[in-house]
Amino acid sequence: MEAFNFIPILLERRIDLGNQDKEKSKNKEETLNGLHEDDNEQESSEQDSEEETEESLEEKVLELKDQLLRAHAEVQNVRRVAGQEITKARLYGAESLAREFITVGDNIQRALESFGQEADIKSIKEGLELTLKSFEDSLETAGILPISPKGDPFDPEKHEAISVVEDAQEEPNTVIEVIQRGFTIQNRILRPAKVVVTKKADNK
């Protein structure tokens, strides 16, 4: 009888073990399913992140292209305006200088007309001096200034030596005579002055 009583106990244990195995298997399956779901969610999240990154890069590329086009258009506009301003400056500069020389021409015409009125030498000289003064004023307005270096040391950048003479009273390389005045324009040499320069006297 005791042996028969032990059989139900074994059956109950087997049933419990079977239930435990089923529960473990179920838990394992649920765990695996959870892992698969996590992997799927992670893959989906990574894919979404990559798509967002690509969209962001495309937007930045388009923005940079737009900025480049705007900058190019602005540079072209600046060049066009600068070209127009340079052209205007040249035209207006020539126009202003032309007005000044017209005045010089008027003075020369008056000087010539004075010859027909039996003018004396003094009045002719005064007329020519006035004309020369008007001419020099016109040049100065255009930034053109004369070089009159008499008494100055010889400067090969501003002067052209036509002759060299001995002079015991002056220091060597001194300009003692100006044959033809030179001119500068905006501090640049337009024409060097032609001069006579001294050299050390040869003591014999």
Rank of each mutant, 00 (worst) to 15 (best):
S138F: 09
T184D: 05
V197A: 02
F154N: 02
I15N: 13
P153S: 06
H36A: 14
F6Q: 15
V75G: 08
Q76V: 03
T103D: 01
L68C: 08
G127K: 08
V75N: 14
A201H: 05
Q117V: 10
S45P: 12
A161S: 06
Q20F: 04
I86R: 07
A168Q: 14
L130W: 04
L69R: 15
L62Y: 03
V81A: 12
S49Q: 07
E30R: 10
L57G: 06
S134I: 05
N27H: 09
G151M: 00
E23A: 09
E129T: 01
I179L: 13
L35H: 07
V196A: 00
K26G: 15
L97C: 12
K88D: 02
S25P: 08
P172I: 12
S56E: 13
S49N: 09
I15H: 10
Q186D: 11
S49Y: 01
S45L: 06
Q117A: 15
S44A: 10
E55C: 04
Q42W: 06
M1K: 07
A111S: 10
G182C: 07
A119E: 11
V196L: 03
I176C: 10
T198M: 03
D120C: 10
Y92K: 15
N40V: 10
I144T: 07
L190C: 13
L62T: 09
N203A: 13
E129G: 02
R70A: 14
I176K: 02
E157A: 07
P153N: 07
G127I: 09
A98M: 08
A142M: 04
N173A: 14
K88V: 02
E157V: 04
R13G: 01
I108Q: 04
V61P: 04
A168D: 14
D120E: 10
H72S: 10
V78F: 12
K133S: 12
N33K: 14
E37W: 06
L132P: 08
L91H: 07
E160H: 09
S96C: 01
G83K: 02
N33H: 07
N27K: 11
F6T: 15
L57K: 12
N33S: 11
S25C: 11
L112V: 02
V104W: 00
R13F: 03
F4I: 15
E30S: 09
I147Q: 04
F6K: 15
A3V: 12
P149V: 01
E52Q: 07
D137S: 14
S45H: 11
K65C: 14
I121V: 14
K125Q: 15
S134W: 00
D21I: 08
R188C: 13
E136Q: 10
A161C: 10
P149S: 03
I102L: 15
K88E: 00
S148V: 11
L10T: 09
V178Y: 02
V78I: 14
L91Y: 04
R13L: 06
E113L: 08
A82V: 14
D16P: 02
G151T: 00
V81K: 12
N107M: 09
I144Q: 02
K125P: 08
L62V: 07
P146T: 01
E157N: 13
R70T: 13
I185K: 12
E50D: 11
F115L: 15
T31G: 08
A193K: 11
S49C: 05
T87P: 03
Q186V: 02
L64V: 13
T198Y: 00
P149L: 01
D167Q: 05
K24P: 04
K22A: 13
N187R: 01
L62G: 09
K150N: 09
A89R: 03
L69K: 15
K28E: 13
S25Q: 14
